[in-house]
Design a protein around this nucleic acid. Structure first.
Length: 548
RNA sequence: GCCCCCAUCGUCUAGUGGUUAGGACACCGGCUUCUCAAGCCGAUAGCAGGGGUUCGACUCCCCUUGGGGGUACCA
């Protein structure tokens, strides 16, 4: 019976790394018949956005990762927002202060910076110089009166600390390397290290599953647990997901692509761009110049304005690109973990039922988008027609597709005709022609050249003949259209392509669409003919010119 | 700099002293084909390097190299 928790800090959308951690939290809890707790770690007043917690929860739910205890659903150990638990933390701070395991300090950021520089100059790892005598109440009062910042640090005990990690085995740390870290900030909020230890105990968390970036924090947490008389949970530090460029996969990957694009764009209106992104000119310049990155939607807003595509990092990015949550869940579950089942395409339920915590591996993994695409295709095939339809409608809405208002029957036909697509976006793009007015079709010049104009305009000639025969058809159906087109091809001793491609170009403007018979049937005879006529009209004189 | 983690095909991985080192995705070739996909068939491809231990190392130990993480009044 494992009680696990996912503890995001609400600074933006849920990203792929967080989703993976949450997934394994869920798998572990469900497999053992335990509970999965969601806790919002909003102890950084400057970085938390009020909407982010909601976004994170929406994303989790979209993925099908539902928590048993936490915001929206409640539970025995609430509240589940850390910002609402300040009085609890304060009680434990007092306990530590009284027992001599913590002490006040008053350093400014500048003073700390100086100490760090000095340590670096000596090629030494910086650890906070613990005072021989801890400041007493009167000194605290004095510091407060002088307007100084007051923080509380944890007194790191001496000796070796061993982390027993399910994935990594024993990892040993020397306490001398670990600084007396701050547990209470000058704004009265606890730091992550403190709040998480308190809450894990109070919420009965038995298994802490988190990214490897937290491994170094663990000895400090264990020391804290000992000082407080808490139990130490089972730890499992997950290998990280890295991106092609190397480095932990994060929104920095998006920032990099965006920055490069901005630098390449000539005559760019930077003031306008900053305003689009809803950031100040200073923030914008800092973003361009260095490593700083605006929080929130700024990066996506700029990319949208510039019309460039950024790599998907956040869960919503994948949603908007036409991925299925089932595919995403399946894919990230197989990063740093392998299923005991002898297949790779797995449902969430299969993942839960077969979950085996000994099957994690220690190596970082690269997020391979091509493989995700393949998984997505398989999961599209796995869905029932109704499930697919429902997902597709959600997608169309998110993608602002003109197909949003189409009725279910048409959408189902499109979905059927689009079988084999790798993303919902592909299906949408291949069927956009159905939702454009006849006279708004834009022709791809290269494609038109190839199928209409080449060989003295044989494509145009084909269209003219086709039009007559299509009109003569007494009953239009996929079958009758297919028979007609195949008949013509046979009669003329040419491949079906010679007949179908000009037709496709006439109705879609491009050489890529859903299969031609279905396409025409869905479009309808009248619209098809109108588009053919328009195409003939538009290109006939070009053919004449070429013949000259 | 210091601390910590890691190392099997291009990628995700199986493998726990004796295997023809297996699968999936990608790539390449072929078939199929009304486009893009899809489908079918096939091929190429891997134990980072060096020392040990052992009758025997992909597997255990050490070193080197490489990659990653941490080094905040962020989480």
């Amino acid at each position: 019976m494992a009680v696990t928790r996912f503890a995001p800090s609400p600074t933006g959308y849920l990203h792929i790394g967080g989703a993976r951690t949450a997934l394994f939290d869920l798998l572990w809890a469900k497999k053992t018949g335990g509970k999965f707790v969601l806790r919002i770690e909003d102890t950084d007043q400057s970085r938390n956005s009020p909407t982010a917690a909601k976004q994170v929860m929406d994303d989790l739910q979209w993925l099908g990762i539902q928590w048993d205890q936490g915001p929206q659903v409640g539970g025995p150990a609430g509240p589940y927002y850390q910002s609402q638990r300040l009085d609890i933390y304060n009680r434990y701070i007092q306990q530590l202060l009284t027992s001599g395991n913590a002490y006040y300090c008053f350093d400014t950021a500048e003073e700390l910076e100086q100490m760090r520089k000095k340590a670096a100059g000596n090629k030494q790892n910086f650890t906070y110089p613990r005072p021989n005598k801890f400041p007493d109440a009167s000194e605290v009062e004095k510091a407060k009166a002088q307007g100084k910042d007051v923080m509380v640090r944890f007194c790191m005990p001496a000796g070796e600390i061993v982390v027993e990690d399910t994935i990594r085995g024993q990892v040993k740390f020397n306490s001398n390397d670990i600084s007396d870290f701050i547990i209470l900030k000058s704004d009265g909020f606890p730091t992550y290290h403190f709040a998480c230890v308190i809450d894990d105990e109070l919420m009965g968390i038995t298994h802490v599953i988190r990214g490897q970036e937290h491994l170094m924090n663990t000895p400090g947490h264990i020391a804290l647990q000992k000082a407080l008389g808490f139990k130490t949970p089972v730890y499992a530090h997950l290998s990280l997901t890295v991106s092609e460029g190397g480095g932990k996969m994060s929104k920095r990957d998006k920032a990099k692509v965006l920055k490069d694009a901005i630098k390449k764009t000539e005559g760019l209106d930077k003031v306008k761009l900053a305003s689009v992104a809803q950031i100040s000119a200073t923030e914008f310049e800092e973003f361009l110049a260095g490593d700083s990155m605006p929080d929130g939607p700024a990066i996506d807003l700029m990319a949208e304005y510039l019309g460039i595509e950024l790599p998907e990092i956040n869960i919503v990015d994948f949603f908007k690109s036409g991925y299925l949550p089932q595919a995403l869940v399946n894919f990230i579950a197989l990063l740093g973990y392998s299923s005991p089942l002898d297949k790779e395409i797995l449902t969430l339920q299969e993942l839960i039922d077969s979950f085996d915590p000994t099957r994690f591996n220690k190596t970082n993994s690269l997020f391979d988008r091509k493989k995700l695409l393949a998984f997505n295709m398989e999961h599209i095939k796995l869905l029932s027609a109704d499930e697919l339809l429902s997902r597709y409608k959600d997608y169309l809405k998110a993608a602002n597709s003109p197909a949003v208002n189409a009725d279910d029957i048409l959408l189902k036909r499109i979905l059927k005709a689009g079988e084999g697509a790798r993303t919902l976006a592909e299906i949408d793009h291949k069927s956009r022609f159905l939702f454009i007015e006849d006279n708004k079709i834009e022709y791809n010049q290269k494609d038109a050249e190839k199928v209409l104009l080449k060989n003295n305009g044989e494509g145009i000639a084909m269209l003219a003949q086709l039009k007559e025969k299509l009109l003569a058809l007494d009953k239009i159906s996929e079958e009758s259209i297919e028979n007609l087109l195949r008949g013509i091809a046979e009669q003329k001793q040419v491949g079906l392509g010679k007949v179908a491609q000009p037709l496709r170009l006439a109705i879609c403007g491009t050489m890529v669409s859903l299969p031609i018979f279905e396409s025409i049937d869905m479009l309808g005879l009248k619209a098809t003919v109108r588009r053919m006529e328009r195409t003939i009209e538009k290109f006939a004189n070009k053919v004449a010119k070429e013949i000259k």
